[in-house]
């Protein structure tokens, strides 16, 4: 089997397993939906990491996506989940195109700090806008799909299924993208920018495109989170949200497009279990778990699968 097909088979298998597990374990559906939504943002971040860039500001797009979807529902009465997701994705992409002109000039810590600063500007603006509920945010009405409400027991499952399909589509698209010439430039840019320029490619343009893709994915994840949780607030643009994405991306590793989702789901489960079993010391439990992963799997969780893949 060629590698592309193997990824496709893995992703289809993962989708089937996710749907089956979700159907059998309704109490975990919500957590998994949120994890997959955040996984979309981490997936985008992985693209940037492969290019050698760390964005500490993906919360900006995550929040923009959520507020676009939520605002459309709240103020214009749009409830169709697909429309809201598309809107979140689109708004994030448009803003990323504009900000990309500035950010594509920066690398390393400067790129990280500037992206962080931009997301904190959005946070500051939202905190000051009392019409949008300031730090309290506002509630998002339950979404619909083809006129059918995504609430209640069955509706929740369909929302979860939608998140699975969105994650699947995101992962597959990015996997295909990595195999195009522009996609392959990621590793080249990370390793030696100067050579990429000598080969005739524009590093600036490549980074700009990758940044827009990453941000559109974050917007998509944000919109999905908003619809799932039913409430949005400026915390989504706060640096801790962006930090969590970076954390999960490093935890998961950049080995595969499935890694961000695996990392995200595991992170949410570990955190949730820690919350439930040690309410006073969950940070300690979470920190210990993460430290162990970093010590024994320095290339992220995905390295467990990656070595086996190479042998095969």
């Amino acid at each position: 089997m060629n590698p592309r097909d193997r990824t496709l088979v893995t992703l289809v298998a993962a989708l089937v397993v996710l749907l089956a597990v979700g159907a059998l374990l309704p109490p975990w559906q919500f957590l998994a939906t949120v994890a997959l939504a955040k996984g979309c943002a981490v997936l985008g971040l992985m693209l940037l990491l492969r290019t050698g860039l760390v964005s500490f500001g993906q919360g900006l797009y995550f929040c923009l996506g959520a507020y676009s979807a939520g605002g459309l529902g709240q103020f214009l009465g749009v409830t169709d989940a697909l429309v809201l997701l598309a809107a979140g994705c689109l708004v994030a992409a448009v803003v990323a195109v504009v900000l990309g002109f500035l950010l594509a000039n920066y690398r390393n810590i400067f790129f990280a700090m500037l992206s962080l600063a931009l997301s904190m500007i959005l946070y500051g603006l939202l905190v000051k806008s009392q019409a949008l509920g300031s730090t309290d945010g506002f509630n998002v009405a339950p979404p619909t799909l083809a006129g059918w409400a995504l609430s209640g027991h069955d509706g929740r499952f369909f929302l979860y299924a939608l998140a699975c399909v969105v994650a699947f589509a995101g992962a597959l698209t990015l996997d295909r993208y990595f195999k195009t010439p522009l996609g392959r430039l990621a590793a080249a840019i990370r390793d030696n920018e100067l050579r990429v320029e000598y080969m005739g490619a524009s590093v600036r343009q490549a980074i700009h495109v990758k940044y827009v893709i990453a941000c559109a994915l974050a917007g998509l994840g944000g919109a999905l989170t908003g619809l799932t949780v039913g409430h949005i607030d400026p915390e989504m643009a706060y640096w801790t949200t962006s930090g969590e994405f970076v954390f999960v991306a490093i935890l998961a590793g950049t080995g595969s497009v499935a890694a961000p989702f695996l990392g995200s789901v595991l992170f949410e489960i570990v955190r949730s279990v820690a919350y439930q079993h040690s309410p006073n010391t969950w940070q300690l439990a979470l920190g210990t778990a993460m430290l162990l992963v970093i010590m024994f799997l320095p290339r992220g969780l995905w390295s467990i699968f990656a070595t086996r893949g190479k042998v095969a």
């Binding site: 919500f30 957590l31 989170t225 607030d233 915390e235 989504m236 949410e268 955190r271 919350y275």
Partner: peptide, 13 residues
């Protein structure tokens, strides 16, 4: 602690 998304998750749990 942890924000509204986290709290909705934990409430459901």
């Amino acid at each position: 602690a942890g924000g509204t998304t986290k709290q909705v998750t934990e409430y459901r749990n």
